[in-house]
Amino acid sequence: MAPALSKPSDHAGAAYASDPTQTRGRRFEEMESRTRSPYQRDRDRIIHSGAFRRLKHKTQVFVYHEGDYYRTRLTHSLEVAQIARSLSRFLNLDEDLAEALALAHDLGHTPFGHAGEDALAECMKGYGGFDHNAQTLRIVTRLEQRYADFDGLNLTWETLEGVVKHNGPVISKGQSTAHLPRAFREYEGLEALDLHTYASLEAQIAALSDDIAYNNHDIDDGLRAGLFTVDDLMALPLVGEMFREVYDAYPGLAPRRLRHESIRRLISHMVEDVIGETSRRLSALGATSSDDIRNANHQVAAFSDEMQRHDKALKSFLLERMYRHYRVNRSMSKAKRVMTQLFELLVSEPNLLPDEWQALTDGARTQQTAETVCDFVAGMTDRFAIEEHRRMFENDPIFR
């Protein structure tokens, strides 16, 4: 017989933090773990999921074969989780919930970054569309099939809420859900996620951590790829200040060290700004429970007005100098063709799908078949999509 174990330690977070001992539970009732809190268990289920492992070969901007040092969805998710944990620890929130949401936030992304998502959204126009947040919900509630008693990961209500609402409410109070992605509507019929309210502070922190991580790693990747230079960054507010500060303090510093030291300081500056602004908003709100955060009429975790201006300037720079760079455009154009051609072939000829996927279809170009093909293609890694395309269109290889 297993030795008796004590429950995980009692909740000791701030009054406005999510309390794992007060979770609204899971859709399918389970005995909770004797060694982990409900949110720790959520985090572990996400890490062990097939969708999380596939993030290793799903890219942000650069297709996998372009270099081993560029970020993937997996390395990005780990960076987001680190920032979210640090912020949550300082603000006395539940670190495990914030980490679980940071690790889950990209599960629904297609191969080839936003280019893949755009292509799949276009393919699915006549079948209800495609949205990566809705796909994440679909993955964790339905597509992952690891457990004997239920489909999905059976995550807590608070984690599912954060998956859906980390960027804010998705409807206004009393508004119809008819315009929402199908996955949101379907799950709302099974378990209400209070779509008109904000999510927990942990979810809001995870969303901001995503912003901090991808802005800064895109600076790093863009410099590494030669899409722009340090001199180009000098005109940007805050970013230029950080690089100039390091350049002046360490004359002659090697470019790689200059890049890493400047980005490290930039991340720290953004993190400290979030702590200051969020603390100010918490004080003004006088929140005494996590529901006070949900029912606020504004986001509580946020950048200051000044940092929002810096963030906007950086995003505009990256859009023009990186995301729209002709080298990136060429790669993403190829990626869109891979996604589009695979979808069109498989939705027209579902008998080309692997047996377990083919069993879920019901004929060419039906709603059910389109959704099945969408799930299949969205779940691919970059390299698997390229290989599948090569196998299907052997005489017309796109990536050489």
Rank of each mutant, 00 (worst) to 15 (best):
V328H: 11
M380V: 10
A148H: 15
A178W: 02
P181T: 06
L266E: 13
L193H: 06
L318S: 07
T278H: 04
Y16R: 04
G129A: 10
D68H: 13
E349S: 15
H310K: 00
G162K: 08
Q175N: 03
I83D: 08
A235H: 00
E158A: 09
R54T: 12
H114G: 11
R280I: 03
N167A: 15
G189T: 04
L208D: 06
N133A: 15
I171F: 04
G13I: 07
G108A: 08
N329A: 13
R34M: 08
T141R: 06
H114P: 04
M322K: 09
L314Q: 11
R327L: 12
N216M: 12
I139H: 01
E306S: 08
T23C: 03
E66P: 02
Q175M: 13
S304I: 04
V80Y: 06
V300P: 06
I205H: 03
R34G: 11
L180V: 06
V163E: 08
L193D: 09
S49N: 12
R265V: 08
M270L: 14
R337K: 15
R26L: 13
C374S: 13
F303M: 03
D210I: 02
Q82A: 10
G128L: 11
Q82I: 06
S289E: 13
R256P: 03
E144C: 05
T75Q: 14
R327M: 05
S331K: 11
F62K: 08
M1L: 09
E356S: 09
P354E: 14
P251Q: 08
E320T: 13
Y70E: 11
A183E: 15
K165P: 03
M270Y: 14
Q82H: 11
H179L: 15
E122Y: 10
G50M: 05
S348V: 10
F130C: 06
P354M: 10
S86V: 09
L208N: 02
E117G: 14
A15R: 02
P237R: 04
L353Q: 13
Y187W: 10
D305T: 14
K173I: 14
L93V: 01
Y16E: 02
N216K: 04
K334M: 14
Y16K: 01
V80Q: 07
D232W: 00
L233V: 00
F228H: 02
T72Q: 09
V61F: 07
I386N: 09
M124E: 14
F384K: 15
D292C: 06
A51N: 07
F384H: 11
L103F: 04
K7E: 09
D273H: 07
E388K: 11
L233W: 00
L193G: 03
Q40F: 00
V246A: 06
R324P: 01
S283F: 03
V328F: 07
V338Y: 05
D396N: 15
R138E: 13
Y127P: 09
R294A: 12
F62H: 12
I205P: 05
A206I: 01
N167E: 15
I83E: 05
E99T: 09
Q82R: 11
S49C: 13
G128P: 08
R89L: 11
R89P: 02
I398H: 00
D118A: 14
W157M: 05
H260D: 12
I293F: 02
H260V: 09
L236P: 01
E261I: 10
